[in-house]
Nucleic acid binder design. Structure first.
Lengths: 169, 169
DNA sequence: ATTGAAACTTGATCGTT
DNA sequence: AACGATCAAGTTTCAAT
């Protein structure tokens, strides 16, 4: 099996994420890769499914993030701990979503990882945070739905959003 | 307080989500709204923060989705239930992410909702699914981090992704 | 705030290497 | 596959409403 992506593809993807634009021009300026090559590469990534639409939904498997781990985290109560602990959790490599909830769990953390090694690293990062009392992790066997960014709108009736905002015709 | 968005803004956002492109041209064709007006509206939504970057990360609060609910769902074991039940969960309005896990929980479901009404609706939708045994829901008091789509790349060292894909220099 | 038309920038194509 | 030059196509601006 041949590699889907090489270093150069990543350089382009990182530049897009960094600049927050997919303009050939800007990617060219950020990377030094000629405009036409940037264009060619992005087109190739579209064709092989790594980039899924014009708004750059990425195929996580395609970029090597095959493991999804969902963790529950319990922490010591302190003033403002949802911010301080939340920030520490956010900073761990591979951590993608952090939700602060109240009740029997304090945080829910979703991570995308490349390997078992990273899972071990994740756990030891949790353990190195002083305020954390206990964690519990689950592997997602399959990701059935993820609608993110602008795609989220497909989850709703226009009606629902209108009434949510108090819009009237 | 004046409304951030009106019907027309939504029409444009929905068209973008539907067409999977933000081209003035295509949005114009899909909606009949003149190109220059589409341009003007998108620019305005950028300025007031509803659209956060060129790759169309949306401000969920801005479009009225103020409530995040995270649910754990337990279901009867059946052949292929992760698909059948997972699909039913995915189809509920406002459901945004569905993860199938094994062990003490079967599914983790993340929803974005506009109102308490929608929360009640969510729960009754859960209850109407035959295979579901039990559910448990938490409200996210705050969403501390969400890196989605192409932004996910910012969570990683380039190194990590390279080694995850088995790339070598 | 909206729009049609003009001006301009950029993405896409093509031919070489 | 990479790339510089070219051109069609789309974005952005502008002036009028």
């Amino acid at each position: 099996m041949t590699q889907l992506l090489d270093e150069r593809d990543f350089e382009i993807l990182f530049a897009i994420a960094e600049c927050e634009t997919a303009s050939n021009e800007e990617v060219h300026e950020a990377t030094g890769i000629p405009k036409s090559t940037v264009h060619y590469r992005i087109q190739s990534m579209r064709e092989n499914g790594v980039i899924k639409n014009d708004l750059f939904e990425l195929d996580r498997e395609g970029i090597g993030l095959k493991i999804t781990v969902i963790s529950e985290v319990w922490a010591e109560f302190e003033e403002g701990y949802h911010e301080t602990v939340g920030r520490k959790l956010s900073d761990i490599e591979g951590v993608n979503q952090v939700y602060f909830t109240m009740g029997d769990t304090d945080f829910i953390v979703i991570s995308r990882l490349t390997s078992r090694d990273m899972v071990e690293r994740l756990v030891s990062e949790y353990e190195s945070i002083d305020e954390i009392r206990r964690t519990s992790s689950k592997f997602a066997i399959s990701v059935i739905k993820e609608n993110v960014d602008i795609g989220i709108l497909r989850d709703y009736d226009e009606e629902t959003l209108h009434s949510g905002l108090g819009l009237t015709e």
